[in-house]
Design a protein around this nucleic acid. Structure first.
Lengths: 222, 222
DNA sequence: GTTTTTGAACTGACTGGTCAGTGCAAAAAC
DNA sequence: GTTTTTGCACTGACCAGTCAGTTCAAAAAC
C-alpha cells in the first residue's frame, strides 16, 4: 500500500534519541511502526485529513496504543519531524566531513551534500513531502518545532558556504543565508519533482543536472 | 487580518476567464471575495483544516453563498488554483518575451523570469505557500488539476532553456526538464524562505543572490 | 508482578453539505 | 407611472456523519 515502490520506509534507527530516554525495546518498536504509518499517511493526505484510526490501522496496532505511546496526534507528528530531520542533518554533515577528510574542495563538499540530500529524499520520500508541505505554514501548533528543525538542516549548508568564503574558494559577495536556502530549495524541489513527475530518471542523472547548475555550466557554458 | 502586511491580496482580475462565461458582475465579485478568503486560510492551515464556515465568514458572506457559487469545497479550491497559476505563467511569459524583444540573451531571460517569479511570490505569498504545500501530495482529488497547472508553469522555463540550447548559448548537455524543475524550485523555496524567515531582506537582495547562483558565481568565483 | 497492548464502546465538538425562505432590481402587465 | 411578477443571488438554521480523545477491563508480553 506504499504509494511508491521500495522496501520498508524506516524513518527511525537514529538511536533512542531524546524522545524517550528510557523506552523499552518493545515500546520503541511500536513507536517506530507508528512513525512509519503516520509519515506516509500524512504525506499523502496532510495532517488534518489523516485520522488517528487510520494511523493505528496501518501500523497494525490498536487505537489505544497510539494514545498509550503519544500524548496526542500533534505530539506524534512533532516527534516524527524531529526524528526525520535528525537523520537528514546527520547524513548531510557526514557527507561534508567525508569530503573534507578526503581533501576535497568546498564545491566538492556541496556536491556531496547534494547527493546525500538526494539519497535521503529517495529513501524517505514521504518524509520530505510532508516537510515541504508544512514548513511554510503559519499559525500552526508545531511552527516552533519546524523552525528549529529547518535551522538545523540549513545551518549545515551555511557552514560549508562560510568556510568556502573564508578560504577564498567562494566570492565574498555571496549572501550565505539566502544562497543556502536557495540551494536547499533547489535540491528539495528537483528531487520531489523527479519522484513525482519524472520517476524514470536515475539518481545520477538528477545529481548531474544539479551539479551542473551549481557550477554554473547551465548559464553560459565554458 | 492578512498574515502579511500590504494591500488587498487580489488573486483575480485575470478577466472573466473560462470559469463562468456569463457570470453577473455581482456574482463575479462574490467569487473574488471567496477566492481571497480561501487562499489565505488554506495557505495558513491547509485544505482539510480550513472549514467552509471560516471561508464564508472571512469573505463576509453566508455559508450557503459558497455553495451557490461553487459545487463543493474542492471545486472552489481547484478553480482557485487555476486562477492563480494563470496569473503566474502570464507574468513569466511576459518577462521572457520582454527580454527577447529588447534583444537580451537567454540568460537575461532566465534572470528576468526569476525576478518575475519573485515579484509574483511577493505579491501573492499565500497562493505560493498553498501551491507548494499541495503540489506533491498523492491520492488527492485535484491531483490532475495540479499536474496541468505545474506543467504550464514549468513549460515556460523549459522553452527558454531549449531556445538557449538551440542557439548555442547553453551547453547541449543540460537536462532541460530537470534543470527547469530545479530552477523553479530554487526560486520558489528561496522566496518562501525569504518571506518566512528573512523578511528584512529586499527583493533586490534575493534576486541578486539567485542571479549569482544561476551564473555560477557561487561555486568557483571568477 | 509489572509493563504494554488490546479493542470496543462512548462522548462531545465540529463539518460538509442542504434547503426552505428572503431581498431586491428589472421586466411585464396594467 | 404604478402594480405585479419573475428569478437570480444570497441567507442561515439544520442534519447526518465524522473525528480526536477517553475509558477500562482483560489479555499478552516481558
Amino acid at each position: 500500500m506504499n504509494g511508491r515502490a521500495g522496501g520498508p520506509v524506516t524513518i527511525g534507527a537514529m538511536e533512542s534519541s531524546s524522545t524517550t530516554p528510557g523506552g523499552s525495546a518493545r515500546r520503541e518498536a511500536t513507536r517506530q511502526k507508528l512513525y512509519e504509518a503516520a509519515v506516509t499517511l500524512i504525506a499523502e493526505q496532510g495532517f488534518s485529513a489523516t485520522t488517528v484510526d487510520e494511523i493505528a490501522e496501518r501500523a497494525g496496532v490498536a487505537k489505544g496504543t497510539v494514545y498509550y505511546n503519544f500524548a496526542s496526534k500533534s505530539v506524534l507528528f512533532e516527534e516524527l519531524l524531529r526524528h526525520g530531520v535528525g537523520l537528514l542533518t546527520a547524513s548531510l554533515r557526514e557527507a561534508a566531513e567525508r569530503t573534507a577528510r578526503e581533501g576535497g574542495s568546498r564545491v566538492d563538499a556541496l556536491d556531496a551534500m547534494i547527493r546525500a540530500g538526494l539519497v535521503f529524499i529517495d529513501r524517505y520520500p514521504a518524509f520530505t513531502q510532508l516537510y515541504v508541505a508544512e514548513l511554510w505554514r503559519t499559525n500552526r501548533a508545531w511552527q516552533s518545532t519546524l523552525l528549529v528543525v529547518r535551522q538545523q538542516a540549513v545551518a549545515v549548508v551555511e557552514d560549508v558556504l562560510r568556510e568556502g568564503v573564508a578560504n577564498g574558494e567562494f566570492s565574498e559577495e555571496i549572501d550565505v543565508p539566502l544562497t543556502a536556502a536557495a540551494l536547499v530549495g533547489m535540491v528539495l524541489v528537483a528531487a520531489l519533482d523527479w519522484q513525482s513527475f519524472q520517476p524514470e530518471r536515475s539518481l545520477d542523472e538528477v545529481h548531474a543536472a544539479l551539479s551542473r547548475l551549481l557550477q554554473g555550466r547551465a548559464g553560459g557554458h565554458r
